[in-house]
């Protein structure tokens, strides 16, 4: 599904190397987790995969089902099935959440040569999926993420994911700022989407989220590289001992 080889990334504006040779393969239907200390490059990896400006790939490659991602525009990557749930969801004053969702869904349908959903059909699906995430009508009407609480923003990301039905979902610290109940809601939302053809890359700082979304593989990222890969037990090790031991071990 997702294949990243020797990915090197620096900031466009500065001579600062952030990713220093990331190698990662996520197979179809699997859940991979990336853990790592702050500043290790986790968000940068997710931004570069989704096509954000400001980064320069100096070496390496990334592909989705064999298709080179790095040459595509962000909207083309989305149409190819890539989705990023943002660590910091963006507020868009003046654009209603519902309008935003419908524009996105229809844009993707259009790019795949499918007919746009009628307003009525769309509404029905949104309401149903919003309900399981405890997103009420008011949140759907309000401008995208404006005045949303941290938890509301994250649930809104998962709603977008549920509506767009991507095959490769990257979740960047979706657990940060969530209380226990919200964490459960979000995890259930994610788990409901798990399927054979859909893969997840769950970026998180803490083991907590991985109790709910059980990963198949856990990677530790430090200083722009994947420094260790293992099973779910690796997350527990981090939880108990912190990153220091692992980092010392790989030095």
């Amino acid at each position: 599904m997702l294949e990243i080889k020797n990915l090197h990334v620096k900031l466009e504006e500065e001579e600062k190397q952030i990713l220093k040779g990331v190698n990662l393969t996520v197979e179809a239907g699997k859940v991979h987790a990336i853990m790592g200390p702050n500043g290790s490059g986790k968000s940068t990896l997710s931004y570069v995969l989704s096509g954000r400006d400001g980064y320069e790939v100096t070496d390496g490659e990334a592909s989705l089902d064999g298709e080179d991602l790095l040459d595509l525009e962000p909207e083309e990557r989305a149409a190819a099935g890539l989705f990023l749930a943002f660590q910091y969801p963006v507020e868009i004053p003046g654009v209603g959440n519902m309008t935003f969702l419908r524009t996105a869904v229809n844009a993707q349908r259009k790019s795949r040569g499918e007919e746009e959903l009628s307003a009525a059909d769309f509404l029905k699906v949104v309401r149903e999926r919003a309900k399981t995430l405890k997103i009420d009508a008011d949140m759907l009407k309000r401008p995208v993420n404006v005045g949303f609480s941290g938890g509301e923003k994250k649930r809104n990301e998962i709603l977008q994911m549920a509506m767009l039905e991507p095959k490769m979902c990257i979740l960047d610290e979706t657990d940060s700022g969530l209380d226990v109940d919200a964490m459960k809601l979000v995890s259930e939302g994610v788990n409901a989407l798990r399927s054979e053809g859909r893969s997840f890359l769950v970026i998180t700082h803490y083991q907590r989220l991985l109790d709910h979304i059980k990963p198949d593989v856990v990677h530790i990222m430090a200083n722009g590289r994947i420094v260790k890969t293992g099973g779910p037990e690796l997350a527990l090790e981090v939880e108990n001992n912190g990153y220091a031991d692992i980092l010392a071990e790989v030095e």
Binding site: D53, E73, A78, A104, A107, Q160
Partner: peptide
């Protein structure tokens, strides 16, 4: 960028 990442052309 946020909109584009959701598939909406620039």
């Amino acid at each position: 960028y946020y909109l584009r990442s959701r598939g909406v052309p620039k």
